[in-house]
């Protein structure tokens, strides 16, 4: 871990709120992104991320320094969002609202590529909605945060074998749904553009 973060962490554990503020600033995007991808709504994601940082603040004395702070925060966020999803059973997807995004490689793609990415991403977000909250969280942690199966297991309080089977199930469900969806859209396009034989 970065020495500056270590210093903030030490100070925050000693009760320094300003140091904890720096940690919030540093980890806000990671936590917010997980909440947003899990809840699919910006306002709810903001509230959830605020709640996650508050819970972490109250549990700082229980934080195990051998674990990564980010993994610990994401673990709190995952559990919170899974509970929220179970409570609310969200069905709507917030796709009209524009929002700021950060590309992981730091390079902005071309407008055409962005358009294509957005289309695919919207389609996949809709499919992610159909997954069980825990399967979805496992998939998020695997792809957005590049966590190992062991780290995911620790974050979600599951066994490694349970994570493996959940990841397999989630991947299969997504692949099957994406396949059906693609076939359906191709069929619709054909019906729209090809002249009728009647």
């Amino acid at each position: 871990m970065d020495t500056q973060i270590e210093r903030w962490l030490d100070a925050a554990i000693q009760g320094n709120d300003e140091a904890y503020g720096h940690l919030v600033e540093y980890y806000q995007t990671g936590v917010f992104n997980l909440c947003y991808r899990m809840l699919n709504n910006r306002q709810e994601a903001e509230d959830a991320a605020q709640e996650v940082f508050w819970r972490a603040y109250n549990a700082l004395h229980r934080y195990d320094r051998d674990r990564s702070f980010q993994t610990w925060l994401l673990s709190i966020a995952s559990h919170f969002c899974i509970d929220q999803q179970r409570k609310r059973k969200l069905t709507l997807i917030d796709i009209d609202e524009p929002f700021e995004e950060t590309f992981r490689d730091g390079n902005s793609p071309t407008p055409e590529k962005t358009m294509l990415l957005r289309e695919n991403s919207t389609q996949i977000e809709a499919m992610l909605e159909t997954l069980k909250p825990t399967d979805r969280a496992a998939l998020m942690l695997r792809y957005w945060y590049e966590m190992s199966e062991k780290e995911i297991a620790e974050s979600l309080s599951l066994s490694v074998s349970a994570v493996k089977s959940r990841l397999f199930r989630a991947r299969k469900e997504l692949a099957l749904a994406f396949d059906d969806d693609s076939m359906e859209s191709q069929r619709t396009e054909r019906e729209l553009y090809e002249p009728s034989n009647v």
Binding site: V24, A45, E46, Q50, F53, S121, R171, L174
Partner: peptide, 27 residues
């Protein structure tokens, strides 16, 4: 094939960022 496409979208999916002033709101 289907999974390969999904994986490529997941691998390139951007991080959603909170609105400006998140840390101040937290304080």
């Amino acid at each position: 094939r289907s999974w390969k496409r999904i994986e490529s979208v997941l691998d390139t999916a951007p991080f959603a960022r909170p609105a400006e002033g998140f840390a101040q709101r937290f304080q």
